[in-house]
């Protein structure tokens, strides 16, 4: 699922500084699941924005709506009365924000969250990045642990010298992806594959303006 983190209220407040009627739209899929963009987040953020403006001595009307997904036009049709507002703050991921921007081409759109990664829901409120969307999956070569997402340098051939007691050089709270891979491959009895040199990735698959067409 796509994980997003809330933007600070200051940032949101500054973005909509020039507007007095704003519609805040939540998304009921990924960002709701990761507790940042569902109906509750919309309500809390809208209330906070309203109060913050009141403290500044200016009123702001904040409409609240949450749709099932902002990455589908059909669901965006459920956004009502957008024309009554001067601007829209979307709490969806970057995809949804752009969706609503396309849906309402004449309305300024502001992001209410920072889209961060594709992650696994470890437990209540805790998510870890698991996939970079590189377009060239090699999980079969690495014991089901992704080196692209889980090694800070996306190395393909083993741990760097910064590996430290199973932790990464960028932070002792982060696991070294390659130690995880090595241990997993050892457990699976596939260490012979570890010896093979993995070729540089085809980053062309990750970096272009991507689309996928299954219609044919």
């Amino acid at each position: 699922m796509i994980v997003a983190e809330p933007k600070s209220l200051d940032e949101i407040k500054a973005m909509v500084d020039g507007y007095d009627r704003v519609l805040m739209v939540g998304c009921g899929t990924c960002v709701e699941v990761c507790l940042t963009g569902g109906e509750r987040s919309v309500n809390l953020t809208a209330t906070a924005l309203r109060l913050a403006r009141k403290v500044d001595g200016r009123d702001i009307e904040v409409g609240e709506q949450t749709v099932i997904r902002q990455c589908d036009f059909e669901y965006l049709d459920e956004v009502k009365d957008a024309d009554k507002y001067e601007a829209i703050v979307s709490l969806a991921c970057g995809v949804g924000i752009q969706g609503i921007a396309r849906k309402f081409p004449n309305t300024p759109i502001f992001p209410g969250v920072n889209t961060t990664f594709m992650g696994f829901n470890e437990e209540y409120g805790y998510y870890t990045e698991m996939c970079k969307g590189c377009g060239e999956c090699i999980l079969h070569l690495t014991g089901g642990v992704c080196p692209v997402a889980r090694c800070a340098k996306s190395l393909l051939n083993g741990p760097c010298g910064g590996t430290n007691n199973g932790k990464c050089e960028i932070g002792s709270d982060k696991d070294c992806g390659w130690v995880l891979i090595y241990n997993k491959m050892e457990q699976l009895g596939t260490l012979d594959k570890f010896k093979e040199i993995n070729a540089p990735k085809n980053y062309g698959k990750a970096g272009n303006i991507r689309s996928m067409d299954l219609r044919k």
Partner: peptide
């Protein structure tokens, strides 16, 4: 391969690591 930028003096730099030492 090189140390990660977060260990250095330009911590916000985008790390490249297009390829790595073995490659």
């Amino acid at each position: 391969t090189g140390d990660h930028p977060v260990l250095g003096d330009h911590k916000d730099a985008k790390p490249v690591f297009d390829i790595e030492s073995v490659q």
